[in-house]
Design a protein around this nucleic acid. Structure first.
Lengths: 122, 122
DNA sequence: CGGTATCCTGTGGGATACTG
DNA sequence: CAGTATCCCACAGGATACCG
């Protein structure tokens, strides 16, 4: 609608709940941690568990399946003697890293401002 | 730790759960929608409700309080004849917009790849 | 208009046990 | 090692009613 809006308060109303749908890419407990943990390269199931101590096997498994289905990461079964499975970010999934990093940066600065009740372990 | 790591598989282990703490800035239902809705300027409570139809008054109220406490937005009571309240992103809160936008962009492209079971209304 | 209080429910996630 | 199956429950969030 190129015509002027009747409303004078708000320049432009935001888009519908599409935002919600897109944000669902990183939904679920520990999803961002998994993505974050994979940012330096492929990792195995048990490594991810070690990276994210509080996550349970069930939830990690669920999250990995979801993220794979969403195209965020790939699952590669390596036919080694003790079979191992590697998870790796897809190129598209890797593009989430800068975004997550930006949020973390803001989080840090909010913490510096004393707004966030964080662990103060920084 | 500038010394070489023993582990040869992973270049560098990810940071602890600090990521989780920082991501908590945008936690809670509709939090990102609220932030997104404020990106074009200040908005009032009822406007936010209209922007995000499925949100209940209780949850919106809760989320606004949290986001204010975290320093993401400010609450301004305007002493007009019918008193109105405006919510507005802080500068730091505004820095979340590009990050959220980046995630949305990735979401769109995942959808184009057919990975996301989105509304297909794009 | 801009909220709070109360109640109720679904579901996401933890613990545990088990499998290939 | 890399999961799945089952049970359980806390708690986030919706509905509704009410208040300044």
């Amino acid at each position: 609608m190129p015509l002027k809006m009747r409303k004078n308060r708000s320049p432009a109303p935001p888009e519908p709940c599409m935002l919600t749908e897109c944000m669902a890419v990183i939904s679920g407990a520990w999803a961002v941690n998994v993505i974050w943990s994979l940012r330096a390269g492929p990792r195995r199931f048990s490594e991810l568990r070690a990276d994210i101590p509080p996550v349970s096997a069930k939830v990690l498994s669920t999250r990995l399946s979801e993220l794979e289905e969403r195209g965020v990461l790939t699952r590669n079964v390596r036919p080694t003697s003790p079979p191992s499975v590697e998870y790796e970010l897809t190129p598209l999934g890797g593009e989430l890293i800068p975004a997550l990093d930006a949020i973390v940066q803001v989080g840090h600065r909010l913490k510096d401002n004393g707004n966030l009740p964080l662990s103060a372990a920084g």
